[in-house]
């Protein structure tokens, strides 16, 4: 009962959190490039403007698919906070991302299609990590829901150092930051125009944007999960991780997809796999 309210709260508050985070991100990025940057609330203005614009759909399927993308992103967070099994949450998270790939693939444009292919690659690169992360958390705490992990009396994070480091690498993909922003780009000059969002406009692009806000909030919740005993510490840890992402985003060029796939899989396999394996070996 209580947990359902948390889920509902997430659906309402996560976009505010994600949008504000995007606003801070844009200010900080601008300052790193010695620019002033847009107002803090610019992401909200942008989405507001997008919603007012006329929407052109290349393929009528794209609309429902993108709506599905937003709904499943929101659902991922709601289920997580609502007390569903963590492994199940990781699968819903992947499903939500898959809707975006399908929507982009449905547009009959080469840029969009190649972007969708690349998104599929980064999805392949990042999904094993989330499953391993959930497995690691469940293994350490012995429980399998968000609320139970938070109620677990010991810190989870110290036993998952490999997963913490891998989190930083995979978050670069999920937050669409350079060097791993191969499927879309927050910065428009790239080989795929805007990758998988090339053929989305108006309302549809607003959906993608809002879904991304949910995505940031979910990643934040995952961080809180790792720092289970105190959510303020989890928030601070997420803030530090995000700041690092922004710094790396402004200090590297975009990598090619082979490097993305290789480095994320290597990180997942060595750091996460090693971490989880060690838990089983040392554990009992």
């Amino acid at each position: 009962m209580n947990t359902a309210i948390y889920g509902l709260l997430f659906v309402v508050l996560a976009p505010l959190f994600g949008g504000l985070l995007a606003g801070v991100d844009r200010r900080v990025s601008a300052r790193m490039q010695s620019r002033i940057g847009p107002p803090l609330l610019q992401p909200f203005y942008d989405v507001g403007k997008l919603l007012q614009k006329k929407t052109r759909q290349v393929n009528p399927v794209a609309g429902p698919l993108l709506l599905g993308h937003v709904i499943f992103m929101a659902a991922t967070g709601a289920l997580l906070l609502g007390g569903t099994d963590l492994i199940f949450v990781a699968f819903v998270f992947a499903l939500a991302a898959l809707f975006l790939v399908l929507a982009a693939g449905s547009a009959n444009s080469p840029y969009s299609f190649t972007g969708a292919e690349r998104e599929l690659i980064v999805l392949l690169a990042s999904e094993p990590f989330f499953i391993l992360m959930m497995a690691g958390v469940c293994k350490v705490s012995g429980v399998s829901t968000f609320g139970d992990v938070l109620a677990y009396p010991q810190w989870v994070a110290p036993q998952l150092p490999g997963i913490l480091i891998a989190f930083l690498i995979v978050a670069t993909i999920k937050l669409r930051k350079s060097p791993f922003d191969i499927s879309t780009s927050h910065h428009p000059h790239q080989e795929l125009v805007s990758g998988l969002t090339t053929d989305m406009s108006g309302r549809l692009l607003a959906y993608v944007e809002v879904a991304h806000w949910y995505e940031s909030a979910i990643l934040c919740a995952f961080m809180v999960l790792l720092f289970n005993r105190s959510w303020p510490i989890g928030l601070v840890a997420f803030g530090v991780a995000y700041a690092l992402e922004v710094l790396v985003d402004n200090s590297t060029s975009r990598a090619k997809w082979q490097l993305v796939l290789r480095s994320t899989w290597a990180a997942t396999l060595v750091l996460c796999g090693g971490n989880v394996l060690a838990l089983f070996v040392i554990g009992r």
């Binding site: 900080v28 601008a30 300052r31 790193m32 010695s34 710094l247 402004n250 200090s251």
Partner: peptide
């Protein structure tokens, strides 16, 4: 080495070059 990291951090505290 990521040589741009230092530049990014320094810019963060320096005055922005843009004009309003």
């Amino acid at each position: 080495t990521l040589p741009m990291v230092r530049r990014s951090l320094r810019n963060l505290v320096a005055r922005p070059a843009t004009r309003k």
